[in-house]
Design a protein around this nucleic acid. Structure first.
Lengths: 195, 195
DNA sequence: CGGCTACTATGACGAGTGTCATAGATAGGC
DNA sequence: GCCTATCTATGACACTCGTCATAGTAGCCG
């Protein structure tokens, strides 16, 4: 996937997210990010005076916004939206990506959480906000499908939890089995909440 | 939690698991492990000639075995075992630990997967085996409660996926909300499979 | 033209890493 | 006693990291 035409600063954030979800935060070097983004090394300290911490936090935030926006696209692609259909769409995006890149990359928010939750509090906060930026649109979509408001947020949390966990297992096993299993088993529960 | 009386080698594996789940694989140094275990630095190269990779892999394997053994203890502590009761026990162990240590530590298998799935294939395999060593006993327990054999493994995968994902969210949010939500929402589905 | 800002380029520094080499200690067998 | 295998101890090496300092370039305004 060639780096698209964007402003250098955005390219670096995007590249950071890509590398983080592949190798983790600690294993992703600033020099690697610059090279991956095709940006000069000196620009990093110019655009991100807060250093690696700032870059990582912006990458995590970017990932959260991206995931949130995807929800709307999934909805638009479905003729008759259902909770299980939305979840299936989320899962199939990941299975397709896993098959495309050979299970090389996971979720950047998960990587940042596992790596920095204790050491860097600002990154932990950024991860929490990223999860919120993802859960919110999912919950809203569920409400739009008829799920009672008091359960929509809980089901959104359940969906994202199951998805993140299945992502880990799938990556470890190099097999999308966990993802498809979770989607199949959760479907009746999700649709059962529609009033 | 003081390091219990064990043989030095086992202490180092145990300490490695503790540090990995706190700070991630890359951020955990060999010197840190030796110090945490109260073991001499020189012993590392003696017991683990395969270097850090070997130590990490054994720590991950240890974590998988530990999680698998816990299932039996959870079952023994319940008078009338149910799928939702087992899941609630797994969740409550984590909520208790989170409250005890201030959300400092996550799951070592998840950390190893996020950090090494691409870079170190042997660690990725170790993580997959750890998940298997955990899923197996859960599935067997479900069968013992009357869950049909063909669905027991799927439900075990669902339980562990949801738990792992909720762990990540809980750690990021510094709140056990995700864990309790997942336990509550998943309960009827899990118990509904009992014939 | 000068002057200023935005951005790029590059070398250096100190701290940290995993690993290795080598030497020292300790304990059991006989 | 000595010999040997197991374990400990420590200093050094090559390397990478994030960050800083400093200089250079491009482009626009006046």
């Amino acid at each position: 996937m060639a780096v698209p035409e964007r402003k250098p600063r955005e390219r670096m954030v995007f590249s950071a997210a890509q590398l983080i979800r592949r190798d983790g935060v600690a294993a992703t070097g600033m020099r690697d990010v610059a090279e991956h983004a095709g940006a000069p090394r000196g620009s990093l300290q110019h655009y991100f005076p807060g250093g690696k911490e700032q870059l990582v936090n912006e990458a995590v935030a970017w990932a959260g916004r991206y995931a949130g926006k995807r929800v709307a696209k999934f909805l638009a692609a479905m003729d008759t939206p259902t909770p299980s259909g939305l979840f299936a769409a989320m899962v199939s995006q990941w299975t397709a990506e896993f098959h495309a890149v050979g299970f090389a990359s996971g979720c950047p928010v998960a990587a940042a959480t596992a790596d920095c939750a204790r050491s860097t509090d600002s990154t932990r906060t950024a991860a929490a906000e990223a999860f919120a930026a993802w859960t919110g649109p999912v919950a809203e979509a569920l409400r739009g499908m008829g799920v009672p408001p008091e359960r929509a947020h809980a089901h959104a949390t359940l969906m994202i939890s199951a998805l993140e966990g299945a992502l880990l297992i799938a990556r470890a096993e190099r097999d999308t089995r966990a993802l498809t299993t979770v989607a199949a088993e959760l479907a009746p529960l999700l649709d059962g909440a529609v009033r």
